[in-house]
Design a binder for these strands. Structure first.
Lengths: 363, 363
DNA sequence: ATGAAAGCGCTAACAT
DNA sequence: ATGTTAGCGCTTTCAT
């Protein structure tokens, strides 16, 4: 049904190569011919078939973006940032959701492989070796994970976890629980590693709980566990779990932060609207999306040669696989307060070592 | 770099068509040959190029899904439902976000056109004629809009708006405001039409406000307007705006529902967690996602013929463009209460005509 | 400035 | 059961 290049050629009395040029190299065709071709193309409703074009040029002008869970509010800012950055460079972004499923992840990369010029793999759950394998099918930039040999952009959640633990320890907490994230998550391992170290340095005990699904339900389900281990503070894998935990503790009649302090990670917009407002580690998600697109597209000026070989990644032909680390920042709100070892009260808390502590009685 | 069908053919000493058959029609090839081909393919890391395959089969086994705003929590359930329904039929879903921009919308449909077998256009903002034009490029199913001649699935927001207005009127409200949605939104027009009718029937005044962006900020920005028009109840285009309005009213010192009642539409999960909890019209988003995929893929058994012509949509060759309407349901929570014409108090409210009114003082 | 011809990676008649 | 041939819609040498 849709018109092809041949239809246009026939209708305007020129060879198909002229029609082709009219669209991909207009300056090479006589202005008169060009406008004639354009006119017939218009009247026939002709649009170049991008897939066919890609088959020969090797460039689709699309990039794929694979996320673990589109319903997790952590992702949309990253997706939007990637989209707008891509659009500026005349690329389109196709997003896919894996439902936290490593198998779906690989399948999706492979399905996208030949329809995009590269894919952004965000918070992948599959193994490193599988990721490397995928990277032979299509250029990959990994977000929220470090894979040697592959370009990646990570947020420094290790530093964030450290800051969170120190904040908690500064408030006098000595029994802290870590609500672990999903298996296969680099971020989860990183948080755990850093939290363990920081806790030891601060002379606090850190109990690792989970793994639970990184959702509100997962967090809510952990409330009972949290109570049983007898901790006075919890660091959660992400805000969603922290918020679920807040609710779980609430229905258990446990007050936050008076009895238990809670810290999340991500600073999703929702965390500003819980009661109490959530203390959390802000991750620069939009910046991550932009950076990832930039890394993927940094060589789109160098079109791939006729041989189908990818353009060299650097002038000297060596692969430069940059790894970008973005800073995180602890934002202290109302879900953290003095632990049992310190006298309660805003006065003391306000002078705690880890910086200003938001008033946890207000609102 | 990636191996092609020819590489495999050469390496395993057969013709390329045998390799092709090994992957697309295994039963037609000798088991021995097949396993030999499979082995070399494996060792070469060969994967069929889906784009090239699609060029000739006319089937990509991908479907596109275009939404207005991925950050709006209304969409993820729909997206996930569509994905899982598609996966069952061995299809992948590529999502794209238009940022509420009609231009981006068209661009995206066209960009996807040849890389997918069809696209789900969700809450489109472009004109009907543009949509029809797009539908000549690629099979379309429209969600949240009625376009004559095109298959569509809509949620009955008209009924929902009616229910909401009647609920409000039953509580004694006579001055009601409607917080309008974005231009170009069919849902927005539909709500407006139904609300106007229902208000007149109930003897209430309905003032239409907006349009504002369908976001929390958009809702918050309307708080002042709402106060000025002197209404006692507001129906918002969606939950996001309603929630923003809740916050806006709060910072203006206006109590909900004592001074003003607020009703949203969508029943996103967040609406259960505001204070007061939001009364809203629940829309069956997951069902809509599934239904849309089913409509798009109902003929995927009939492969397109060699001529490139699409398979007829029905046995008799006539296009059957079904329009599915899904029911909505008013869920009454705590953001609506008695209006000025009725004596205040839970006792009376509990006996109001429109059904049970949740206790609006609790929590 | 335009046409002719080859070919991107693959599938689908049609032979054999 | 396998090979041959043509061609999907397009771009890109190479001629003219």
């Amino acid at each position: 049904m849709p018109a092809t290049i041949r239809d246009v050629a026939r209708a305007s009395g020129v060879h198909i190569s002229t029609v082709s040029r009219t669209f991909s190299a207009p300056h090479l065709v006589n202005p008169e011919t060009r406008s004639r071709v354009l006119a017939t193309a218009e009247s026939l409703g002709y649009r170049p078939n991008r897939a066919a074009r890609a088959l020969i040029t090797g460039r689709t002008h699309n990039v794929g973006l694979i996320v673990a869970d589109i319903a997790n509010p952590f992702f949309p800012p990253l997706i939007k940032a990637a989209e707008s950055q891509a659009r500026q460079r005349d690329y389109h972004v196709f997003v896919a959701d894996t439902n936290e499923d490593a198998t779906a992840e690989e399948e999706l990369v492979l399905a996208m492989a030949k329809q995009v010029d590269g894919v952004l793999l965000c918070s992948p759950r599959m193994s490193n070796s599988l990721i490397e394998q995928c990277s032979r099918e299509v250029p990959l930039v990994v977000i929220n994970r470090l894979v040697t040999g592959l370009p990646s952009v990570v947020m420094d959640v290790g530093q964030g976890a450290r800051d969170a633990i120190e904040h908690l320890a500064g408030l006098g907490h000595r029994q802290i629980a870590l609500l672990g994230g999903p298996r296969g998550s680099w971020t989860s391992r990183e948080i755990r590693r850093a939290a363990l170290l920081a806790a030891r340095a601060a002379g606090a005990d850190l109990t690792v709980l989970g793994p639970n699904p990184p959702t509100e339900d997962g967090g809510a389900a952990a409330a009972d566990q949290v109570r049983r281990v007898g901790c006075t503070a919890v660091l959660a894998y992400n805000d969603l779990m922290a918020i679920g935990l807040l609710e779980g503790l609430d229905s258990l009649g446990i007050r936050v932060p008076e009895e238990i302090s809670v810290v999340g990670i991500d600073d999703i917009s929702l965390s500003r609207r819980t009661r109490p407002k959530l203390t959390t580690v802000a991750t620069p998600t939009a910046a991550a999306g932009r950076a990832a697109i930039d890394m993927l597209l940094q060589h789109d000026n160098t079109a791939p040669s006729r041989t189908g070989r990818a353009a060299p990644t650097a002038v000297d032909g060596r692969r430069t696989t940059a790894q970008v680390t973005l800073q995180t920042e602890l934002v202290i709100r109302d879900s953290t307060g003095p632990g049992p070892h310190l006298p309660a009260g805003p006065t003391y808390a306000a002078t705690a070592a880890s910086g200003p502590v938001a008033s946890y009685v207000k609102e």
